[in-house]
Design a binder for these strands. Structure first.
Lengths: 349, 349
DNA sequence: AATAGCACTCTCGCCTTGAGAGTGCTAATC
DNA sequence: GATTAGCACTCTCAAGGCGAGAGTGCTATT
């Protein structure tokens, strides 16, 4: 693979860049004219033939221009992965937006999704950060009506889950508050396992709620990601490869059925570290569902404590030059946010 | 308009039904053969010409079959609006699903969106119910880190809003709990106006939180709908009128930009009563944004107390026969759910 | 009033065709 | 030996032509 000459490299990158822009097969003549190369088209043709033999380019049909192959894209991406940075002006704009919206976690998530989609012109997805090992922080029980109560659980890291329960019999708000207060005292900072090891409570209500909390914590640990924020679905439809609405439908369905998406994220994040990007190109590694699409993924957060995933989805011909730096930058921002939360907690102790 | 003969009516309905099924212009011959009419195609042609003159049908081009005009669809809808009921088996399936998911409000909303989208094969949208005149019910203040606190406010009707605040200086959880307890005692059941009329609190923290609560209540009243749950976006892409991805993109963009959607819902619900359906066909009434699409909308809830909106969006050629009864039925179900919540609250007093 | 018949119109799919773009190869050139 | 000019060849794509088919409106007839 590294038998590529310098000239072949430049040529390959040029071809891919051009194809990403134009969505057209690129020919030797066009290449010479457009990029002021000091070579004749014949030479280019020879080189292109060589690159085609190596499997980096493809011809849609005899005597058409060349189109990058999956392999070609991968090479392209590997070349630019580690250098590309988002222009500073854009960085500023983005971080400014985040600064303005120093709202709650939900605000961050939607903002991140929106920024990713706009910058990369692809479909974005962001999962909320969730604690690797959830620690109990606080619970509130609020009577909403007769036997129904609202339970709000806060975990370390700022994760909040709310849930409506129906009790066997009505309970006064006062008693609920007492129960919550007792549990808050005795469970603070504990993990699921710690809680499981506690002796059974004498008060039946306390014990019931405790079980529910630990179930919720376990669930939060398992589900991995929970809600997925997305944006930019219609960007897909602007791409010529999705002019056929069948194609578009198939791809967008991925996003509508969140379960597939969660599965995908879960499996890919297994072998990825925070800070590192993962770029899935085409059906790479058994992801036939991706079809002719690509996915730029990154994890963010604080290793071992809390993390989430974010990424951009688009056609294989997506603008990696925009997507990759943007994903990396936004991942960095979100990591900082998570970090701040954690730091705040430590400090509070 | 009501100068239509019986025969013309049947014919019109037949034509529209056929067109909705096939997405093709329907001709006189096809009509005779397909529906075993005791008439010749020539007679049908005459009637069709008459209907075309009245503006209920259109010819895409000379000597093609007829296609319903917007006016035609409107007539069609007005005919079936008040009779159509969802088949009982389907009703059972749906209510069963709702029964199983007797989760929280969010569960209901997503379920409603999913049911609507599946049944009608269109794009669904559902807004959470929100109180016409929000009444304060409960507040919880939870310290999450240093100066940041999580405020969970519960309104009458079960509406919950959570929000992260940053205080000027760190406050202990204990003090927060006391503040919450005091506010809960003195604000219970009050409306925004009531709260505004209260004397200023001596405790600065109490007063700050009180202001935030009243701001939140006002906001909740204004924003009208808040989050909009949608489902079935890809159903649009299956329709032949959206084979051109431009068209699809334009229509789906409506759904991505929630603001337009909210605006639309807000304006249409102004003059609609709970229980009554509204069907917007094409650009009817200055809704050019709808283009060649239709919208079946309904409000649900309890008049004067809490209400939300739900609806189905699709091409003008959408299956009203499915959409209308489904929207009506689901609106009924959600109304019942809201009603139960309210009833539960009254009973609790 | 309903119908049969007929001439007419318009689209749509199919085919052909020519232009254009691009290739690969060979022979000439630096 | 690498590069280039030249050329014959291939393939797509858009445009035009053509015929079939579906459907209409009108008129004369039942």
């Amino acid at each position: 693979m590294s038998e590529l000459t310098e000239r072949q490299k430049t040529l390959l990158l040029l071809i891919i860049r051009d194809h990403i822009e134009t969505a057209q097969p690129v020919g030797s003549k066009r290449l010479v004219e457009h990029y002021h190369l000091d070579l004749s088209s014949a030479t280019i043709r020879n080189e292109m033939a060589a690159l085609t033999d190596m499997g980096l380019l493809r011809q849609p049909y005899t005597s058409a221009g060349r189109v990058p192959s999956e392999e070609g894209y991968r090479y392209f991406v590997s070349q630019m992965m580690y250098q590309a940075e988002l222009p500073e002006t854009i960085q500023k704009t983005i971080s400014h937006q985040f600064y303005q919206t120093r709202a709650d976690q939900e605000g961050w998530m939607t903002l991140a999704a929106s920024v990713l989609a706009n910058q990369s012109q692809g479909v974005s997805m962001v999962t909320a950060p969730h604690a690797t090992q959830a620690r109990f922080k606080h619970v509130e029980l609020i009577s909403t009506q007769g036997r129904q109560i609202l339970m709000v659980t806060v975990f370390g890291g700022g994760e909040v889950s709310q849930q409506i329960l129906t009790l066997a019999e009505p309970v006064t708000q006062e008693r609920l508050s007492q129960t919550a207060a007792r549990l808050n005292r005795s469970l603070a900072g504990l993990t699921v396992d710690d809680i499981a090891a506690l002796p059974i409570r004498t008060d039946a209500l306390d014990q019931d709620i405790l079980m529910l909390i630990s179930a919720e914590m376990r669930r939060s640990g398992e589900r991995g990601s929970g809600q997925i924020y997305t944006d930019g679905e219609t960007n897909l439809l602007a791409e010529p490869e999705f002019a056929e609405s069948d194609e578009a439908r198939r791809a967008l369905k991925l996003f509508e059925e969140r379960s597939t998406l969660q599965d995908l994220i879960a499996r890919t994040t297994l072998n990825s570290t925070i800070g590192g990007l993962q770029v899935l190109i085409g059906g790479e590694g058994g992801w036939e569902q991706l079809g002719q699409c690509s996915l730029v993924l990154a994890r963010y957060g604080v290793p071992g404590i809390a993390s989430g995933t974010l990424g951009v989805f688009g056609p294989m011909r997506m603008s990696y030059a925009k997507a990759i730096p943007t994903v990396r930058y936004v991942a960095g921002l979100l990591s900082d946010l998570v970090n701040d939360t954690i730091a705040g907690e430590r400090e509070a102790k």
